[in-house]
Design a protein around this nucleic acid. Structure first.
Lengths: 121, 121
DNA sequence: TTTTCATATGAATATCTGTTCATGTGTTAT
DNA sequence: ATAACACATGAACAGATATTCATATGAAAA
């Protein structure tokens, strides 16, 4: 993000009607919600994280297996799992030395599906 | 993206079962689809673009008015509209000197709604 | 044609992001 | 207690990204 919110240039054109301005301001979520929303979608904006989510859709899996499945280092996966967990997209449980990750939420699948729908026209 | 695809570390643990590997590889979309999907969601990962989309949900609006509504420069908005257009999220039409933007697709609203649903638990 | 207005765009820059590398933490086995 | 293993994490670095600034384009007005 970079929303500097500098004073807008003073432009002659003003096509906006007062009722439209009110409508926009009424429907626009709060600044904090907008930030949360962007942060949420940004999580899906990385192929590594998306691939992890697709793996977890199939099964509960440990970190090491995810790394092997995706051909990446354990550290890289671990960093990404941290982000997914902070966003409440995955949860984990310990079993001895191993930590198993799984999807935290059922409608993650439907969000990804909607994305696929769009890019496939 | 940064998927270097380096050789995974050779880890002793191998909890994956053969049928799980097959299931994952069967359900995992193609590399190109994954890249497109990430690119698609990355567009929603910025508050400026999300705010633009919320404005356009209310009404067809010209660039200058969006800039004024959001308190940002015309240039910044124009750059973001370009990204939204490339991703087929918005369309535009010219009317004299003015160019009006509007949502290209109805289910953009439902994608944003799903995002809000999630962050509101 | 020349000027003005609305928008688009390339380059530059500051900030953000993902991976790597080295190391720390927590658990089990010896 | 010590070693080995699975995973987490901080720092560093390279690559991506959003805004700004200056300028270009395209249409209407003078």
């Amino acid at each position: 993000m970079a929303g500097n919110q500098k004073e807008a240039m003073q432009c002659e054109c003003m096509h906006v009607h007062q009722d439209m301005i009110e409508m926009v301001e009424e429907h626009m979520p709060q600044e904090e919600q907008l930030a949360d929303l962007a942060e949420f979608f940004r999580v899906f904006g990385d192929t590594t994280r998306i691939r992890i989510l697709y793996v977890l859709m199939c099964s509960e899996v440990c970190v090491c297996d995810i790394a092997n499945l995706l051909g990446m280092t354990q550290s890289a996966i671990s960093h990404q799992l941290r982000i997914l967990k902070q966003m409440d997209l995955v949860k984990n449980r310990r079993e001895g030395k191993t930590i198993f990750y799984s999807l935290a939420d059922g409608h993650i699948k439907s969000i990804l599906s909607q994305g696929l729908e769009h890019i496939n026209e």
